[in-house]
Amino acid sequence: MKSKCLHLAIPAGDLEKAKTFYCDILGCKTGNGEPGRWVDIDFWGNELTLHQSEEQLPNVRHEVDMGAVAVPHFGIHLPDEELQALKQRIEAAGLEYLDKPYRRFVGDEYEQETFFIKDPNGNVLEMKSMVNPELMFR
């Protein structure tokens, strides 16, 4: 059996600030939850559970072709038009990129545009669009 839905639970800091970021800026919707404790977010068809928290995850940098990227991180692959609309919402909200939009593997079958942002609690997200998404897992 192959599942197409990932579940990820993360410390979200102030739950209301986190919900504003994920829903109003990224465009996600809320699902089930327990007020003041946790809420499920529809993260492009995946279940992202935001937990009210005091702690923040430490981030380190790992070297890849585009430089040193923050680890841990998570994100989503989007069609290009959705990625461009997301960038406009991020910029309209006055958020700064952790790592600005960048094209990787230019001219290669794995060419993609990617960028990194942080949520209000410091969780790092990588958002990307693949030129040939059908080739990712062959």
Score class of each variant (00 low, 15 high):
residue 2 K to I: 10
residue 6 L to I: 14
residue 6 L to S: 09
residue 9 A to K: 08
residue 11 P to S: 11
residue 11 P to V: 09
residue 13 G to E: 08
residue 13 G to M: 06
residue 17 K to Y: 04
residue 22 Y to I: 04
residue 24 D to R: 10
residue 25 I to L: 14
residue 25 I to A: 12
residue 25 I to G: 09
residue 27 G to P: 01
residue 31 G to I: 08
residue 34 E to A: 06
residue 35 P to T: 08
residue 36 G to Q: 10
residue 36 G to H: 08
residue 38 W to N: 12
residue 40 D to V: 02
residue 42 D to V: 00
residue 42 D to R: 05
residue 43 F to E: 05
residue 47 E to C: 13
residue 53 S to R: 11
residue 54 E to Q: 15
residue 54 E to M: 12
residue 57 L to N: 10
residue 59 N to Q: 10
residue 72 P to R: 09
residue 72 P to N: 11
residue 74 F to V: 04
residue 76 I to C: 11
residue 77 H to F: 12
residue 82 E to M: 10
residue 83 L to G: 04
residue 84 Q to Y: 05
residue 85 A to G: 06
residue 86 L to P: 01
residue 88 Q to Y: 01
residue 94 G to I: 03
residue 95 L to F: 05
residue 95 L to S: 08
residue 96 E to H: 10
residue 97 Y to T: 01
residue 98 L to P: 01
residue 100 K to T: 06
residue 102 Y to S: 05
residue 103 R to C: 06
residue 103 R to H: 12
residue 104 R to V: 02
residue 104 R to I: 01
residue 105 F to W: 14
residue 107 G to Q: 12
residue 107 G to M: 13
residue 107 G to I: 01
residue 108 D to F: 14
residue 110 Y to W: 14
residue 114 T to L: 05
residue 115 F to R: 01
residue 118 K to T: 08
residue 120 P to E: 09
residue 121 N to S: 11
residue 122 G to I: 01
residue 123 N to A: 06
residue 124 V to F: 10
residue 126 E to F: 10
residue 126 E to H: 08
residue 126 E to W: 13
residue 126 E to I: 03
residue 127 M to C: 12
residue 127 M to P: 00
residue 127 M to H: 02
residue 128 K to P: 00
residue 131 V to C: 02
residue 134 E to D: 15
residue 136 M to F: 15
residue 136 M to I: 13
